[in-house]
Simulated assay, not measured.
Amino acid sequence: MKGILLNNLGSPDSTDTKDVKKYLGEFLMDERVIDIPFWKRWILIKGIILKIRPKKSGAAYKKIWWKEGSPLVVISERFTKKVAKKVDIPVELAMRYGSMSMEKGIKNLVDKGVTEIMLVPLYPHYAMSSYETVVVLAEEIIAEKYPQVKLDTLPPFYNKPDYIKAMSNNIANHLKGFDYDHVLFSYHGIPERHIKKSDPTNSHCKIDGSCCERNSVAHHTCYRHQCFETTKAIAKELGLDETNHSNSFQSRLLKDPWLKPYTDFELEKFPTIGKKKLAVITPAFVADCLETLEEIAMEGKEEFLEAGGTEYKHIPCMNDNDDWVDVMVSWINDWKNK
């Protein structure tokens, strides 16, 4: 029997500092998130970051926490339930980090008699710190505990036409009645070195403004290229021209160079060049979470208005809207019927 494992990032169990610390410890100690030698990572995370950041992150989570729990988890659960109602094979939800572990999700499917799983990383784009770490962990769990189970994985869907259409419809619906000067596509940032590490050719990715435009096998695992392609496809669908939209990258960590331009710098710049009515989209996420609800919808708005902006609109992710549910159902059915 076939089954589906939907997977997203994860969340602390609560906003309490101890729960946030536990979650951040698991997340930041992942070698594909902070890719430095273990001993350096241990000193940095255990000795420095986890002594400071959990309290600050807990305060941020409190600003966006829902009565039902973490928005990311609640939305993902709603999405999973809607999808499960429309397909005739088992569907489970798991998180890469936190108590809703992938091991539990896989076990739940196996306990239902599933012998073939399609893993669905709910990340549109390939990155070693998101898509890749999910796939690697799933493969390790299957090999160690369920060697009889076959594992397939849904490829990154950043440019799938039905996904682009659903995303564009969601954006268009939220832009109705908003007289914007500019639309900013804000993607989650990653260190520049991750781009080069993910390049199978070891030579194509130079992050120089041109490599993303030259055809290469490297694009299959290039987060930067895939982000730009998503923007191009959505801009074409919405009829945006080159003068009224752009890309940026948010959520930097440490002092290493990350993908540019940085979202916070762009938010401060726009009012100074006459772009005072801004809409912000976060296409790296399919469900609203801390990075969209607090960093963009709250902090981003404050930064933009303080810099002289007059109107600011955060476009919600697709979350559990019916178009997105139907797209996922169609992908599942295509796989099931192979």
Rank of each mutant, 00 (worst) to 15 (best):
I117M: 07
I117H: 05
I117V: 15
I117Y: 06
I117R: 08
L119K: 03
L119Q: 06
V120M: 15
P124Q: 01
Y126N: 06
Y126D: 01
A127W: 00
A127C: 04
S129Q: 00
S130C: 05
Y131F: 15
T133M: 02
V135P: 01
V135L: 10
V136D: 07
V136R: 12
V136I: 14
A143T: 08
K145E: 10
Y146H: 12
Q148E: 15
L151P: 06
L151V: 11
D152C: 03
T153A: 09
L154E: 01
P156I: 05
P156Y: 10
F157L: 03
F157V: 04
Y163S: 06
I164P: 02
A166V: 13
I171M: 12
A172W: 05
H174P: 01
H174S: 09
K176W: 02
Y180H: 15
H182K: 15
L184Y: 09
L184Q: 11
F185I: 12
F185K: 12
S186C: 14
Y187M: 02
P191F: 14
E192M: 12
R193A: 09
H194K: 06
I195T: 11
I195A: 08
I195Y: 03
K196F: 02
K196D: 00
N202R: 13
S203R: 14
C205R: 04
C205F: 02
C205I: 11
I207K: 10
G209I: 04
G209A: 10
S210L: 12
C211R: 11
E213P: 00
N215D: 14
S216Q: 04
S216T: 04
A218C: 15
H219K: 12
H219A: 01
H220E: 14
